[in-house]
Amino acid sequence: MKLEKMMNDAQELSQRFHEVVGPWERSLLVTHLAAVVGRLADDVMIIEGKLAMPLENAHLARNIADALIQLIRLSKSYQIDLERAWGELLEEARSGLSNEALVTMMRDTIRQNQTGDTEYDK
């Protein structure tokens, strides 16, 4: 599905939502997004066997889609061009991953974190 269609669908749903319950302030959009991300975390923990709940309680795909729609709604609220922001993010990430010094530092940090060799232990 194209991003433009997703954004249009989100806008259409938001307009209908506003008709039914009234508009949400930006702070409510962020609060709802945080709640959805919390459900996502629970879903992953259930699926990975770290939360003692039946697998049928996990709705990972639905909650990812819900988070995405909330992010789209929030971006529309702040007039953010998501396609441009996406392109800039990819460019920055690619640039960083082609910087050998940065990649080495990232690998070293991850290794230290995995082995528990941190300043917190001292």
Results as ranks from 00 to 15, higher is better:
I47R: 00
A61L: 11
A41M: 15
L60D: 00
H32L: 13
V44G: 01
E25S: 07
S27R: 14
L29E: 05
A58M: 02
A58E: 02
V44L: 03
L60Y: 01
A58L: 02
H32M: 13
A52E: 12
W24C: 10
H32K: 12
E25Q: 11
V36F: 00
E56R: 08
D42N: 14
A34L: 15
T31F: 03
I47T: 01
L51I: 12
A41R: 13
E25R: 09
T31Q: 08
E56H: 11
V44R: 00
A52H: 10
A34E: 14
S27N: 15
A58I: 03
D42W: 05
M45P: 04
I47N: 00
V30L: 14
P54L: 12
L60A: 00
A41S: 14
V36H: 02
V37T: 14
I46P: 01
N57R: 09
L55P: 11
P23S: 12
L51N: 06
S27I: 05
A58H: 00
T31K: 10
E48H: 06
N57Y: 05
E25Y: 04
G22H: 07
A34P: 08
S27T: 10
H59G: 06
K50M: 05
D42G: 05
I46K: 01
R26V: 05
L33F: 14
M45Q: 12
W24K: 10
D42F: 02
H59I: 03
D42P: 05
K50G: 01
G38K: 06
T31M: 03
N57A: 09
L29C: 03
G38T: 08
L51V: 10
E25A: 13
E48W: 09
A34I: 15
W24E: 07
A41N: 11
A35K: 03
S27F: 09
A34S: 15
D42K: 12
M45C: 13
H59V: 00
E48V: 10
L33Y: 13
M53Q: 15
D42C: 07
K50Y: 06
V37I: 15
A34T: 15
L55T: 05
R26A: 11
E56Y: 10
H59S: 08
V30F: 11
W24G: 02
H59W: 01
V36Q: 13
L29D: 01
I46S: 01
G22L: 13
L55S: 07
P23A: 08
R26P: 05
V30Y: 08
L51S: 06
E48A: 14
L29I: 04
G49D: 08
E48N: 05
L40Q: 09
L55F: 03
A58W: 01
G22W: 09
I47M: 01
H32F: 06
E48R: 10
L33P: 14
D42S: 12
A52C: 08
A58P: 00
L55N: 09
S27L: 07
L60F: 04
D42M: 12
V30D: 11
A35N: 07
G49T: 14
V44A: 05
L51R: 12
A58Q: 03
P54Y: 12
I47E: 02
A58V: 04
N57D: 10
A52V: 11
W24D: 14
L28I: 08
